[in-house]
């Protein structure tokens, strides 16, 4: 299993990165950035599918909210109806996580590559000799320089800069795709996810080698760029079409009725007004 992993994923990434560093005068930081761009280009079809799915989700929001309102007391039915809606619209509810899941093996292999290639311990450097291809480009660049800008790529960034960059870009990227909802439970879950994921990754940045965090930061920035080109700023700036008003905070949404709620309350308001007018007439 470990041999297959090394043969198919880890060693090609390790050697690819090392060769890139060789081409870039031994600059491993630049090699990570170029590698990130290549990975994002390879994943572009999946990313575009995800964005398409997100866009479709946006257009489905009014219908979803209507369903949430309609079946607020029957969660099972709501799930069934939503699944049917997704199916009808050709939207996959898990489609948005595929780019992340696909990147998981890359993260692990990249993590291993950084540890091996930059070798902070003799054990890691020694194991590198068994994983490098015999390409002269790769062999001549060893041992690699682990400094890039202010970072020691083999160690966590002791300043908070990279952690903020990773957490911030991830938040922006997630905010662009997180559709608002009127379901309070779902809304709190979304809000938790919106904060938890960037927070977790910012935390990882403080413990993982900064080379890996550099990958996350650059990957997020590229992701934001692609997302902007496809969907614009999405939910980061504006409300979804025909949605209640997602830009409002959770509190505001609780205090103010949604579009559907307003439709239901209109007659009540009218009758109240009519009653008041009759009372006024009586008083007169």
């Amino acid at each position: 299993m470990a041999e297959a992993w090394n043969l198919i994923i880890a060693d090609p990434i390790l050697n690819g990165l090392t060769a890139l560093a060789g081409l870039l005068s031994g600059n491993f930081g630049l090699a990570i950035i170029i590698f990130t761009v290549i990975v994002r280009v390879i994943l572009l079809p999946v990313t575009l599918r995800q964005l398409k799915s997100t866009k479709s989700m946006q257009t489905l929001q009014p219908k979803i909210q209507a369903l949430q309102k309609k079946y607020s007391r029957n969660k099972q039915k709501l799930q069934q109806e939503m699944m049917a809606l997704y199916k009808e619209a050709g939207v996959s509810s898990v489609g948005c996580v595929w780019p992340m899941l696909i990147q998981f093996p890359i993260w692990i292999a990249l993590y291993q590559s950084i540890i091996k290639a930059l070798a902070t311990t003799p054990e890691n450097l020694l194991s590198l000799s068994q994983h490098l291809y015999s390409w002269s480009l790769v062999q001549q660049v060893i041992p690699l320089n682990n400094h890039f800008l202010w970072l020691n790529l083999a160690a966590p960034d002791s300043t908070l800069i990279l952690a903020i960059l990773v957490g911030g870009t991830m938040w922006v990227q997630q905010k662009m795709t997180t559709a608002p909802t009127t379901d309070p439970k779902q809304r709190s879950t979304n809000q938790m996810m919106l904060l938890m994921m960037p927070f977790m990754f910012a935390l990882f940045t403080l413990t993982f080698p900064s080379g890996l965090a550099l990958y996350w930061a650059i990957s997020n920035v590229i992701g934001i760029g692609i997302q902007y080109l496809v969907t614009g700023w999405g939910y980061l700036r504006k409300a979804p079409p025909a949605a209640s008003d997602p830009s409002r905070s959770g509190k505001q949404l609780q205090d103010t009725p949604s579009d559907q709620e307003r439709d239901l309350t209109k007659p009540v308001v009218k009758s109240l007004s009519a009653g008041k007018q009759a009372e006024r007439k009586k008083l007169k």
Binding site: M100, L101, Q186
Partner: peptide, 11 residues
């Protein structure tokens, strides 16, 4: 929707 939320969390 739950699956969508929990897969990244579990990961």
């Amino acid at each position: 929707m739950k699956t969508r939320v929990f897969i990244p969390v579990i990961s």
